[in-house]
Design a protein around this nucleic acid. Sequence first.
DNA 1: GCACTATTCAAGTACTCGGTTGACTGAATG
DNA 2: CATTCAGTCAACCGAGTACTTGAATAGTGC
Lengths: 231, 231
Amino acid sequence: MTNATTSPNRKFKDAVYDQFARIGKAVAAPKRLELLDLLCQGPRTVEALAEQASLSVANTSQHLQILRAARLVDTEKRGLYVEYRLADDQVCQFFHALRSLAEDRLAEVDRVTRAYLNERGAMDAVEGDELLRRVRGGEVTVLDVRPAEEYRAGHIPGALSVPLSELKKRIAELPKRREIVAYCRGPYCVMAIEAVEVLRKKGFRAHRMEQGVVDWRARGWRVEEGEEAAS
Amino acid sequence: MTNATTSPNRKFKDAVYDQFARIGKAVAAPKRLELLDLLCQGPRTVEALAEQASLSVANTSQHLQILRAARLVDTEKRGLYVEYRLADDQVCQFFHALRSLAEDRLAEVDRVTRAYLNERGAMDAVEGDELLRRVRGGEVTVLDVRPAEEYRAGHIPGALSVPLSELKKRIAELPKRREIVAYCRGPYCVMAIEAVEVLRKKGFRAHRMEQGVVDWRARGWRVEEGEEAAS
DNA sequence: GCACTATTCAAGTACTCGGTTGACTGAATG
DNA sequence: CATTCAGTCAACCGAGTACTTGAATAGTGC
């Protein structure tokens, strides 16, 4: 079949697919996918990434260097810190293509999330597009419960920034009568779930929106940057 | 930081990213990417895949089972053979997203292909969109040099099926005056390159089109199926 | 039944990968 | 100038992976 000395065609193909596999290998580890997901929300330091992905700093650094070797992320030295960011918007899109491929093809993804939501006490069914419509129409108070930096890097127009960690302190600021919709990083981020739990306990009418800023942007809708208007 | 007993949030996230990584792991091996690429052209038996990817049958079977476990491919028993096919069109799209990410981000891909083309004797620069326009306009004779089954599974409208293996025999069928454009599986498939070499040696005006059927379809253009009209 | 074929399974080996630990670099800060 | 802090590097271990070889499991045709 293939003779002992591999043909130049074969060599070429092997070389090309080896290159493609560099991308594949980079996204073959769950923790690297988690890091990519976080970086889709905006740039971050190694330490921040390590904490948010529950990794040691050394380990995080190594994963990031693998991602950098695959040219998926870039670094920038900012004073004492090293800031990691996605190398290109295409990377974020690719991550989301991978994610939705997994959602569509692997029934386990759905199973796992359902199990988790059940365990947390039967979250109501997400209302999907109807909820999005009301958010867009400004019919509800929209809460961005992510850390303030991520809000600054981009948020849904009109959303208030109330990081989950500050929610209890600042709960008095929120309008009691109006319906509240909380969102965070996306469908697999649990901050909005917790926020809704807190809000409901205090008597608010609160819902969780699965979509994050990235999904919002993917639909071609406008994303606002910077601080919110002074209240 | 994270206490000994991992929080349920962490467990959930780990479980979710583990699932995503199943897709990642599936595309982490160059040979599996090559198999996926081949399957993008149409269904095939294990043996055919093994031969075209220069793998042993047993090894091919194992790779295919990994792809199947990730739900990227499906099997169908056809008499004595097992036919493997992509589980969904989304898989093909995902493969192409990965490929173009690699092309855009990894300079090595370009370097490797240039080196190969040079070695083969300075292929002329591909003319890209201008060539595509002429192909669409029917201004040239279009040659599909892939094996006949692949032609049948889908080809560029109006293209003639002349598998590379039969080209020398059937070269008399081709119109001598008209310009010929040959295509095969895509930019990293070498059959069209070889076809053009043969044609030029025989005095034809021949060019290679980088794009394959998949790229054609990705642009939203019509793809024809089945045999060519009797000549 | 029998031989034949396409594919899969099982076991073994060399290699790679993820993660830990601890030392190291290089830029502020006292 | 020593200290502190963010991040990286190096060495190591256990688990996993790609590929080979040889046996086992279907279907087909006689």
